[in-house]
């Protein structure tokens, strides 16, 4: 038996629809207030003087509350990073794409597994080693062994002049 749509059914549907929109309009501000606020977003970029960094040294700077590694790589490290075949990589990326100026590697010092800070000059690939769950990264910061799914992230950065890097 087919039920005829009545005036009342229309009123119910219309009421539910308006109610749902109203509920959504109330819930969204409650959810969105937890997202980064204006003061957090304001700290989006930072400039770093790298004139004191010698080859084979890494400095760590804080950007958006996260450590950024700035490493001046040695020629051996660059050669090692370039010699790796792409098919040997879990997350294939060329070293040239990660370090536009091969001497300088600028990357987020955050393990892509669960966010720990990897240790410098450790691990099986002379790069970084994450002490939390044992991820090994090579001299280009690419994941080689362990649970991390991707290479360490390269933030947006540029050389403002020969000695200054602007991150963000």
């Amino acid at each position: 038996m087919e039920k005829k749509t009545k005036r009342r059914d229309f009123l119910f549907t219309a009421t539910y629809a308006v109610g749902a929109v109203g509920a959504g309009a109330v819930i969204w501000p409650m959810i969105d207030q937890m997202n980064p606020d204006a003061s957090v977003k304001a700290l989006a970029s930072t400039e770093v003087d790298v004139s004191a960094v010698n080859p084979g040294k890494t400095i760590t700077v804080l950007w958006r509350g996260k450590p950024v590694f700035i490493r001046r790589r040695t020629q051996e490290e660059i050669a090692e990073a370039k010699s790796v075949k792409l098919e040997d990589l879990k997350h294939p990326e060329k070293d040239e794409d990660r370090a536009k100026n091969p001497e300088w590697l600028v990357m987020l010092g955050v393990c892509t597994h669960l966010g720990c800070v990897p240790l410098d000059q450790k691990g099986d690939y002379n790069g970084w080693f994450c002490p939390c769950h044992g991820s090994h990264y090579d001299t280009s910061g690419r994941i080689r062994k362990g649970p991390a799914p991707t290479n360490m992230e390269i933030p947006e950065y540029k050389f403002v002049d020969a000695n200054t890097i602007k991150i963000g």
């Binding site: 937890m34 980064p36 958006r64």
Partner: peptide, 16 residues
């Protein structure tokens, strides 16, 4: 990011 209220664990994370 929503859970942190920022780009890392920081003060907004602690208060919530």
């Amino acid at each position: 990011t929503w859970l942190w209220g920022g780009y890392s664990v920081d003060n907004p994370t602690l208060t919530r």
